[in-house]
Design a protein around this nucleic acid. Sequence first.
DNA 1: TATTATTAGTTACATATGAAACTACGTCAA
DNA 2: TTGACGTAGTTTCATATGTAACTAATAATA
Lengths: 180, 180
Amino acid sequence: MERDGSTHRNKDKNDTASEAWKQQSFDLRSYFPFLVRIYYRAVSSSVERIYAPLFGLSVSEWRTMAILGPYRALSSSEIVKESSMDKVKVSRAIARLREKEFVKRDIDGDDRRRSVLRLTDRGREVYETLVPLVLEVEDSLLEGLNSSERELLVRLMEKVRTNAENLTLVGSPRIPEETI
Amino acid sequence: MERDGSTHRNKDKNDTASEAWKQQSFDLRSYFPFLVRIYYRAVSSSVERIYAPLFGLSVSEWRTMAILGPYRALSSSEIVKESSMDKVKVSRAIARLREKEFVKRDIDGDDRRRSVLRLTDRGREVYETLVPLVLEVEDSLLEGLNSSERELLVRLMEKVRTNAENLTLVGSPRIPEETI
DNA sequence: TATTATTAGTTACATATGAAACTACGTCAA
DNA sequence: TTGACGTAGTTTCATATGTAACTAATAATA
């Protein structure tokens, strides 16, 4: 990475060819959203290396367990809110976690549409095995960054995310899983 | 975000219950890889808002065009290298771009396994329409960050990515599309 | 209370994905 | 040459995904 942080293109100004003024040099490899993608993929796979092979958990399954871990008893839609997953994904994750008997479900007495989910004992064992391991990964990922750099990284990512959300607000309603 | 950058857990030390020493407080919402995911998704969707509705391009199709834009004529496997997509994805992207007649293919004279891809005139038009738009998105995403912050953000992401890749190196060979 | 609207969660369907198998072509070595 | 191996790119298959339609239950209101 040896380009300045603000922009990496040079408008071909003074170019006289009829259409050439349009031609901005564009290099995917330094396009910020592309860098974000590469970054994300690297981080993702390093975490998945932990819970996928150990207990055959998918991402959404792990996330669901992670939410249930400290909170104890939540409804599906509460998990949706906490996890930034959609309700279909959560529903499927729960279905599989119930098959694996890592999660159990009780129907709410008052509102019988609502179900209350919690980890089973086995689920809690798995959760507690996993937590220190994924924390270890987190540490390794941030290795070499001092605490103010870590703070800054998180802060800048948040800032960018806010910008992104403001952008998306104004437009069409699509939040695809995979992009760039 | 109001936690320190290095860690957000408190080991429940001094807890005397038999298993409780294992219990680290774990909060998905502040788990770094989770934050990365949220960040990535926000950035992704803000870019896809541009090329998806305008020309019905998928992510991999857009990326392929973005690679072909400046370079002119590349083989499929060269695109694979540039794009950090796997060959199946690239192959499919090319197939659809050829249907749409945004990309054309010539078989290499010397090596008839190899095909050489380039944008068609129509493809180049699309590309040139898109480039300024996606650059605009990039700008909006980074709005409010001065250039040293931008530089830093990119640098820190790279550092984390390197850490991640070193981690993944040592283990099982899986690079899933979706994770955390 | 009957009727309609709302909410929780699931299912169906069409599309996207990755791993592995496969096809077609090239290269190397005997 | 011919066979063994290697490479470019495609296809198959099983799984994952999102949208939209759906079911079941509750809430609101007439």
